[in-house]
């Protein structure tokens, strides 16, 4: 079956079994290798991508569900010249070790920040459930907080200061 996909802003038509997991379409048909295979059962998060802005584990997501939706992979998240704030923070904190799990985590983190722009530790714990065998969670947490800062239009303290000022103006 022919399916139209909008991947990283590009319109692509592919031919495949509609039940094929999106992961294999991305990796083997479109040759975008940044999205990783770790388990194939939605259990590790290595294959995390965005479908219409939502984090999705692509190994367990039939390609037909993605037809006509906007798909973003790590290759579309940012570039070396214009990295996404999550990637910038990842570089600042020197997060990766072996690196294999990292694209999945960055995609999960980027989606989390869209919903929760300044997540607490508890929100990070609940929202990021991927597996990293090298144990880079400690730096990832720092990087997610840092990415939240980089993304925020103003720093939280400044925002507070502005808010206080606004209030006094109103009184």
């Amino acid at each position: 079956m022919k399916i139209r996909l909008l991947i990283n802003g590009r319109d692509q038509e592919i031919e495949t079994d509609p039940q094929t997991p999106l992961l294999w379409v991305i990796r083997d048909i479109l040759d975008l290798k940044g999205t990783k295979f770790g388990c194939g059962k939605a259990a590790c998060g290595a294959c995390t991508i965005h479908v219409d802005g939502q984090a999705v584990r692509s190994c367990s997501y039939p390609v037909q569900l993605a037809a006509g939706k906007a798909i973003t992979t790590i290759e579309g998240l940012g570039t070396p010249e214009a990295p996404h704030p999550v990637q910038e923070a990842w570089i600042e904190e020197i997060v990766p070790q072996c690196g294999y799990c990292q694209p999945g985590f960055m995609m999960a983190a980027a989606a989390l920040l869209e919903k929760t722009p300044a997540p607490t530790d508890a929100e990070i714990d609940a929202g990021i459930t991927n597996i990293c065998r090298c144990g880079t969670y400690y730096r990832m947490r720092k990087a997610i907080h840092r990415a939240a800062e980089l993304k925020a239009p103003v720093l939280p303290e400044e925002a507070e200061a502005i808010a206080i000022q606004d209030n006094s103006d109103n009184s």
């Binding site: 290798k33 940044g34 295979f37 992979t73 290759e75 570089i91 990766p96 690196g99």
Partner: peptide
């Protein structure tokens, strides 16, 4: 010194055995 493989790993470059074609 920052890791030499940092950018490749953050940008998701195809550097692993699984990525070979």
């Amino acid at each position: 010194v920052p890791r030499v493989d940092l950018e490749a790993k953050v940008m998701g470059e195809p550097i692993f055995g699984m990525d070979a074609v």
